[in-house]
Write a protein that binds this DNA or RNA. Sequence first.
DNA 1: CAGATGATTGATGCTACGCAAATGATTAGT
DNA 2: ACTAATCATTTGCGTAGCATCAATCATCTG
Lengths: 162, 162
Amino acid sequence: MTSLPVVNQPVHRCGALLEHLARRLRLRSESVLAPLGLRPRHLVALTVLRDRGGSTQQALASTLEMDGTNVVGLLNDLEAEKLIERRRSPEDRRRHVVELTEAGAKRLAKAEFALAAVEDEVLGALDHDQRETLYSLLQQVATGGMEAACVEVDVCDEAPPC
Amino acid sequence: MTSLPVVNQPVHRCGALLEHLARRLRLRSESVLAPLGLRPRHLVALTVLRDRGGSTQQALASTLEMDGTNVVGLLNDLEAEKLIERRRSPEDRRRHVVELTEAGAKRLAKAEFALAAVEDEVLGALDHDQRETLYSLLQQVATGGMEAACVEVDVCDEAPPC
DNA sequence: CAGATGATTGATGCTACGCAAATGATTAGT
DNA sequence: ACTAATCATTTGCGTAGCATCAATCATCTG
């Protein structure tokens, strides 16, 4: 755990950078998303739900790292517009399984399309390949953190490239 | 502005992803930064000032994309702790030139050091090279956006792919 | 001198977010 | 079967960031 006196490579800190860019993206996204009745935070939730194909509210709260009560409000917004569905879990009927509706998937796609211009503007300095690289890195970071949250689900039994 | 029916490559949208990760980083950063009397937003400002070696308040407001009045408050915080200095511009004495003090540079370095653990946790899924790649991509995006703010400086006259 | 500009302050309001307490439904332990 | 714990939900409260507007002062420019 102590610092190995290896090479002392100048690892660049990208915290501030990330925050800065996220802000720029968010500011522009808000105005683009407003006509669709969505906010950036809704987009994030929808994206997670699509990528997972459904989730418990708790799991959602944990990956979004927000308070359970706030997740309720978030989902209420989305449910009011029929973008998601809450269904009781068959295993534990206290739980709600949240899933994207077809309308939700459509709206999400629409939003992403609308956001394309914004991203093009913000990421203008990157070419296509660089954007893909950035995407895969971010994806890896995001899902890397996810593993910890999925430990409880045990098995990838025979799953090939888990 | 219409969609060119070119190749329709599946360009992945990383807006939501970026936002998600920025949030995770910010949540953790806040608690780490608190003992240092800083907030994430202060860090961003200090970083910009260091990278530029000083800036006008207006320029700062424009790159941070925040309202001028809010920048004032931000700088007041930093000045109260002697982390920055406001000096009147010799050319236009209405303007303030903001610069990092030595104490500011130290505090920034301290904060980044304290943040290293947080980043290691969040970026745990990436190895050293990947982090460097991520850093350089983000850096490129950030400084790429800067050019737009420098439009007033006219020209990319003969610049090839402007 | 007159009007525009930069910095600053103060007031107002909105929104996000976390926290706590109460309720109803459901599951689990004994 | 009774009791305790768990999950989702609601409501209310408090804090904080941030935008916006209006007013003021110093300074520059025509």
